[in-house]
């Protein structure tokens, strides 16, 4: 009787464990099944390298290069701003805060991670867009604005993972550097951070993944013009916003093209995760 019960529990656990694996396989299967239709229709290379997205024109054209580049530029700006700020914040949390302040700051950062992206989007719309419009001659809905907003949104990811990596560096490296007459800053930036390098890089990679996938906040500030990006003060559309803006009314080939966009996005995320895993492995191995 007892044995049967423990067996049952074991199976229950096993089922829960394979549920998530089954789900990811299911998602991939249907996404690729539906999404690859467009690749056959217009050709994979034409699809991802095509510069013209006019799904409702006759003849229609389905090129998502503008969106790929839009995602790329916005993510690049996000990581160029959010990366350094996040890493320095993590250093601050580990080496410059007292316990009491640390707990306060940490709870704020965790709160940041929990704020719905639509709220960030709203903040971007009422604060960042006017600010960019004021500072640079543009209408404010731009690659730069979206990049800045995303740089804020990826901070919790970068900070928390970098913090773990920095904290994992043995204290005696830091003390060893100080004992050589090295300043606190030099000890941290020349000894501790290099020792935490792979963990810090994986935090950036995960931040990139988060930025690439973000939708709601971006759609509210990026301008969303489906054309080749024309500079950081001009609007652009990303892979995610391309889908969310048109899915509600698309049908037929147009709908297939949007699912195809999702497939491309999914592949980018898979690649990012693969790179992340490689860096994480390296961290473990020394």
């Amino acid at each position: 009787m007892k044995k049967n019960k423990s067996d049952l529990i074991r199976y229950l656990f096993f089922l829960s464990a394979i549920l998530s694996i089954a789900l990811i396989i299911l998602i991939s299967f249907f996404l690729f099944k539906e999404g690859t239709v467009i690749f056959k229709e217009v050709g994979f290379l034409n699809f991802i390298l095509g510069k013209d997205w006019s799904p409702t024109n006759t003849p229609s054209s389905f090129g998502i290069l503008p969106m790929i580049l839009g995602s790329l530029y916005i993510t690049l700006i996000a990581i160029l701003i959010g990366g350094p700020v996040g890493i320095i914040t993590a250093v601050f949390l580990v080496y410059y805060t007292k316990d009491k302040h640390y707990r306060f700051l940490k709870s704020i950062i965790n709160l940041m991670a929990g704020i719905p992206s639509i709220i960030y989007g709203f903040f971007g719309m009422v604060v960042l867009v006017p600010a960019v419009r004021y500072l640079f001659p543009s209408n404010g809905n731009s690659i730069l604005t979206a990049g800045i907003l995303l740089s804020i949104m990826i901070l919790p990811t970068v900070i928390n993972l970098s913090e773990v990596a920095i904290r994992a560096v043995p204290r005696f490296y830091y003390e060893g550097a100080l004992a050589l007459g090295s300043s606190k800053e030099r000890s941290i930036f020349k000894v501790v951070l290099p020792a935490a390098k792979s963990g810090v890089i994986s935090s950036l990679i995960l931040g990139i993944g988060r930025a690439v996938g973000e939708t709601m906040a971006v759609v509210m500030v990026a301008g969303n013009q489906p054309r080749m990006p024309k500079g950081i003060f001009k609007g652009a559309r990303t892979l995610t916003t391309n889908i969310v803006m048109e899915m509600s009314y698309a049908s037929g080939v147009h709908r297939n093209a949007l699912i195809g966009t999702a497939v491309v996005l999914f592949m980018i995320i898979l690649i990012i995760n693969l790179v992340f895993t490689i860096f994480k492995e390296r961290n473990v191995n020394g």
Partner: peptide, 18 residues
Amino acid sequence: TQLRKEIGMVFQNPNPFP
């Protein structure tokens, strides 16, 4: 930092940097 330049230290556990 000047003091620690003139007074070097070696710790209990070897701690070469990585």
